[in-house]
Design a protein around this nucleic acid. Structure first.
Lengths: 273, 273
DNA sequence: TAAAAAGTATTAAATAATAATACAAGCTGA
DNA sequence: TCAGCTTGTATTATTATTTAATACTTTTTA
């Protein structure tokens, strides 16, 4: 059993501008992700929600009920179990539709995906993780790995490596300092020194190439989307799979494609202003 | 009002289990979608949030601040404007990863998208709208039309038509009764009678084909994903564009593809139980 | 079938959210 | 540059809203 699941309660401070109830509602929603990850459950009972969210029975009851009323959770009247509702996708849309990067990137990603018929992703940094924001899935991979909103520790993902490589030093240090270096696959590089080396190399090359770092059989390539100061605010990432692809083939074909796509997105993004 | 005199005006029941603050927080998040749609804004000032959410200045301040603390909104310190943060994608992931339909559908959608190199979507009913849940984008369409979480009134989308056609009568009536029949394009069928006719036809055919109903130049085809009672709980939808495609070509090639894909998903979903 | 566990409903108490307001900081146009 | 305006931020007293405890009901289990 994995110890070290950080059970940190946030310190909102004695802030009169902070509404604690909102946090608790989100804690309930987060419980479902944890329930799926740790217990493999896709619906939860009230007491499971209570355990996973850290809220007591009454609070779980109130917030669960509220979220059902609002349409963000569904309740099975027979089993009395709760599950996330489609309406939760509203927020993803809200984020993406307000995001000019997504707008500029989408056509480039589609183009890129057609070159070799590969999956192409856009990802961004969020805390110590990267989050996949746009995905053009072409291969039938491990299901979870194909979903938008997926999080992976930045240090273990090629997208994270190139973003960190082209980030301000303080951001880099902060992320590496707070990262939890647990292996994702048996080949994941978890030694902080080795991670730093990989980041340096990515900075030199302008891309990163990782073999089976976050998924078995996967060769992952990524290049940064840079702003005018040469700092990254996103990454284009293409995964391909062995044995269909070899590292040599990836270097020859995927690396240029990823770099060119990232460069094009950057160019379009800063084209008008 | 006298202190110490406690009139029990509050009706016991769901009221005490409803946390209004949660609703207000979501109202703030919704404001961004409205701001983008109605004003074309991708970030909002505090007063704009106040207007769009219907919350007063103080409430907007408190909930905005709370959402920033939690990482769901970002604040530009210079412009003092707020925008949705990547973290919002967490909920989309939560929904999708807990959803066996998505898991079963994804590989089928990918396969289908390769047959003619078209976009393929999965959608579900949410109130009077459909929401696109999984998307395999292949064409460079109108940006917003490519995003997961996009909502369209069910009556105007072929995915909505086929789901409604294969829904219980009371669901159908409820949706049609509450729908707001505004035209999406200039060709949108908005007459409730005509919509009902289209639904009947879709029930007979097992698919729907709509021309420029929700996007110019678009020919949209959809087929329902059915449960064991023959009721729909989702739809597979494929959009193609004129003049590259004609209605005749769509009937010949896309219709069978959409129907077979939907059927396959349904089959896989109920394969084990 | 009894006992335990989980889910639901109710309520008194008080915390935590509210709305009012004061203050500060940016804008606008003269 | 300066009023005058709008918008954003900070601070309060007040109370309504949330809370936690608990009683009650249903379901699961042993």
């Amino acid at each position: 059993m994995e110890a070290g699941l950080q059970e940190k309660r946030r310190k909102p401070g004695p802030d009169t501008l902070y509404v604690g109830s909102v946090e608790k509602a989100f804690d309930v929603l987060k419980a479902f992700r944890a329930g799926q990850r740790d217990l493999g459950l896709s619906d939860l009972s009230l007491s499971q929600i209570s355990h996973l969210s850290g809220l007591d029975k009454s609070a779980s009851q109130r917030f669960t009920n509220t979220l059902v009323e609002l349409g963000y959770l569904e309740k099975d009247r027979r089993t009395r179990r709760y599950r996330p509702a489609v309406r939760l996708l509203d927020f993803a849309y809200t984020y993406l539709v307000c995001n000019r990067l997504a707008e500029v990137a989408m056509p480039r990603l589609i183009e890129a995906s057609k070159v070799y018929g590969t999956t192409v992703n856009l990802c961004e940094l969020s805390g110590t993780d990267i989050i996949y924001t746009l995905r053009i899935p072409h291969q039938k991979e491990y299901f979870r790995a194909t979903l938008p909103g997926r999080r992976i520790p930045a240090f273990s993902a090629s997208g994270g490596i190139v973003i960190l490589a082209h980030s301000p030093a303080d951001t880099l240090d902060l992320v590496l300092e707070h990262s939890e270096y647990r292996p994702i696959t048996q080949w994941t590089v978890t030694d902080p020194q080795a991670v730093r080396a990989r980041i340096s190399e990515a900075l030199g090359n302008g891309y990163d190439l990782g073999v089976q770092q976050s998924l078995p059989h996967e060769i992952s390539t990524a290049a940064p989307v840079l702003n005018s100061e040469g700092k990254a605010f996103a990454a284009v990432q293409i995964p391909v799979y062995m044995p269909g692809w070899t590292v040599e083939q990836v270097r020859e074909k995927i690396v240029p494609l990823v770099m060119e796509t990232a460069r094009a997105i950057s160019g379009s993004y800063f084209a008008e202003g």
